[in-house]
């Protein structure tokens, strides 16, 4: 196997892995403030891509307008999901809330199917230009956008959690909601903010990936699953772990398809995930949990 092939597998893997990472980041944010897994996260990713496609198709908007508009709309929907479904269930056990998010995901997927139809759609790439040769491998300009935006989101999150009072308040909610509330932090607002952020991050992942991988009403299922796996691999609750987990899964899939067999692509990634979890149940970057006795 020549080195150029190996490089190509890495490049493809990192591109796809970056979106798994962004999805995983969305899971992490909501988990950190509410302690639940939001199974509608994959649908935010789908909506990001689909709304951009249709604001161009139906609204006749140019790409640079359609993309931010779609991200904003999905962010607003994230707030809506919290206000309409999560907040009324406050105080209910986490399991009930998780089931609510599954319901929301089915609703969003079904709604998207009815409104946008069942076809697959393509979004034009953000910048024109042919693939860039890179040591025998080739790199799409869109891949640079994908990786660049993922890194930018990660840095922005790091700054937000470390430097801003809202970010710190959100972390406080993650540690102990009751204590945070007693300290004067409005936990409800923090939960809403976390839903808005995770919808935003998911939608971003959706729009930047749509030019490469195409989008349809049902892409959220698989992306959600992979994002969730990335989250677990990186250690639930750790934003850096989430993105790293996404990249690792993306690269493993690509290498697995290239060096072993493309038929077992998905299986390879998940087998490695399982093996890792046996060795390190708290994920690669997670702290071993010892509380809740």
């Amino acid at each position: 196997m020549p080195f150029s092939s190996f490089l190509q597998f890495i490049v493809s893997g990192v591109t796809v892995g970056a979106t798994y990472g962004l999805t995983a980041l969305g899971f992490t944010m909501i988990f950190n403030t509410t302690g639940i897994i939001n199974f509608a996260q994959g649908e935010f990713v789908m909506l990001g891509g689909m709304l951009a496609v249709f604001s161009m198709k139906w609204g006749g908007l140019p790409l640079p307008v359609a993309v931010p508009l779609s991200v904003l709309l999905v962010t607003a929907m994230g707030v809506g999901v919290d206000r309409l479904t999560i907040r009324p269930m406050r105080g209910k056990p986490a399991v009930s809330l998780v089931i609510v998010t599954i319901g929301v995901s089915i609703l969003l997927r079904g709604g998207a199917m009815l409104i946008f139809g069942k076809d697959t759609h393509a979004l034009p790439p953000f910048s024109e230009g042919a693939a860039i040769p890179l040591g025998g491998a080739s790199l799409l300009p869109q891949s640079i956008w994908v990786v660049g935006i993922t890194l930018a989101v990660l840095v922005a999150m790091k700054v937000f959690f470390d430097r801003t009072i809202t970010g710190k308040a959100m972390l406080a909610c993650a540690c102990d909601r009751k204590a945070a509330s007693l300290m004067g932090i409005n936990v409800d607002v923090m939960v809403t903010v976390s839903f808005a952020f995770s919808a935003l991050v998911g939608a971003l992942g959706g729009v930047i990936l749509a030019p490469i991988t195409l989008t349809a009403y049902d892409v959220g299922i698989l992306l959600g699953l992979k994002g969730f796996a990335a989250c677990i691999l990186g250690g639930l609750g750790n934003p850096f772990g989430a993105v790293a987990g996404g990249l690792i899964i993306g690269v493993l899939e690509s290498l697995g398809a290239g060096f072993l067999s493309s038929g077992y692509k998905d299986a390879i990634a998940f087998v490695i995930l399982l093996a890792l979890l046996f060795l390190r149940p708290s994920g690669l970057f997670g702290k071993a949990s010892a509380d809740r006795v």
């Binding site: 020549p2 991988t213 892409v219 493309s262 038929g263």
Partner: peptide
Amino acid sequence: VFGPKDTDMNAQLTKIKG
């Protein structure tokens, strides 16, 4: 082989290229 829902076939094509 590729999965019907796969979104990236670069790996398979790179292999074929060689």
